[in-house]
Amino acid sequence: MISVSINGAPQTFDAAPSVSELIQQMQLTGKRIAIERNGEIVPRSLFAEQRLADGDKLEIVVAVGGG
């Protein structure tokens, strides 16, 4: 089991998912999002191959209204 932080909230997984699998589980497939993992951008092209690891800190963002 691994424990990660997603947007500041702790989450646990029985098996480490890839970033793509995580996006699917979070029902974010097809949404325009960007992901930072431990302070580094995860390019969309690497979503399938990057696998989460215990202790990861993820930020998943979208564009919203703002000034």
């Binding site: 029902q27 963002v61 919203v64």
Partner: peptide, 18 residues
């Protein structure tokens, strides 16, 4: 201009976006 914010975890995936 647009702001960049954390996505709401568990939000309705069909919801409209900006």
């Amino acid at each position: 201009t647009v702001a960049i914010r954390r996505t709401n975890i568990g939000q309705n995936s069909g919801e409209a976006s900006l």
